[in-house]
Design a protein around this nucleic acid. Sequence first.
DNA 1: AAGTGGTCTAGACCACAAA
DNA 2: TTGTGGTCTAGACCACTTT
Lengths: 233, 233
Amino acid sequence: MSEAPYRRIMNALRSEIASGRLAPGDRIPSENELAQSFSVSRMTANRAVRELAAEGLVFRTAGSGSFVAEQRLELSLLRVPDIIEEIRSAGGHYSARLIARNRSPARGEIASAFEVPAGWELLHTLIVHESDGRPIQLEDRYVDPAFAPDYLDQIFEARSPNAYLTAIARPEQAEQIVEAVAADSQIARLLNVSRGHACLKVKRRTWCGGRIATLAWLTAPGERWRLNVKFSL
Amino acid sequence: MSEAPYRRIMNALRSEIASGRLAPGDRIPSENELAQSFSVSRMTANRAVRELAAEGLVFRTAGSGSFVAEQRLELSLLRVPDIIEEIRSAGGHYSARLIARNRSPARGEIASAFEVPAGWELLHTLIVHESDGRPIQLEDRYVDPAFAPDYLDQIFEARSPNAYLTAIARPEQAEQIVEAVAADSQIARLLNVSRGHACLKVKRRTWCGGRIATLAWLTAPGERWRLNVKFSL
DNA sequence: AAGTGGTCTAGACCACAAA
DNA sequence: TTGTGGTCTAGACCACTTT
């Protein structure tokens, strides 16, 4: 069961890009060069690069060449995507920093968004997700202890909160509200950007069994995150 | 400038699916049948169907066939909202400033996003939407003249480009890509914010008859615009 | 056994970009 | 002019599903 040649080429280029040997803006080998070095026909090399372009990893200009695109995660708003998967599929090395992990009584906006009375105790984590050591997303999450009592005992460096929670039970419903915000001092520090930097912030709620299971704010530097919604009418 | 054969096949199948002549679960013609009826090689038919599968419009099973996928998005929750409606329903008084209105040859990102050759002439408008006299959204829109030849003659102060265009024909498909950007000098001036201000920017494309009908960038100050996506899984 | 998708090949022609 | 990507062709072999 060996890998299809066009996939071998895609993976090879992905590694080059992930490792930084091919940096954004760099030209990648032409189709003819790839065909020769991988001992395949040009059509096979073409398909490999074409599919990388469809993924957004490279962009191509006829007559000029194919170039490594700015690395930018693209997530669909119609799914509840897993950050670790997204980073890996973009060719990055995932890591995480756990900033806070505690029990926290709901109040104000959190209580009202969670639809629980003020003072209700929720599980809380604050995590910085990193791609190749660079902060890429700040996740501020609240979880209903009735839904996932062992939530705080998880090893978040290995499994994202989202992956753990969806493994417990698939949500029936999700809501995502998107806005652009200027980085405040905490966000600036944790994401390693300057204060006032344009960030994309998603407030996400998911429902299980008719009740809100988790509430999370996901914040990322604007230039490193894009959200995509494509639908038929 | 005729259309590439594999795109002709894709569009033909899209129409069949959009019209309901091919319903979810139906088998579409095999690659060999498509190759014969469109007078192309099997590789060309293969590419057409493969790309439709990548879009999620069909799914394929080796040995069995290709089938129309369930189109099960919660449409009521996803729409292409009209800015005038939004402002009025929020209790604001709508007005608009027409900054530019012209014919413009497509090039670079616009040509590639519109999937037309460079130099193709598009209709272009640049409009600032205002609520109670305050700039609230900048709309930079390109329209295919074949789709809406009279587009430039509209009175945009009374009817939004979006409302006019959807009145001509309902799009079958829409794509919206969201990002956070810092205001550049033009955006800052037109939206009356400072340079670097965090803005939400949506790139929206809509399809009619298998072709891209319009492409628009919608930019708004982050604190005045939120996007909401709620869906069932 | 016949048909399907999945993939590869070794050529080809074109429009376009850079030198 | 040379090289690039964009595309098409007419064959081919394979693993798989259906009959």
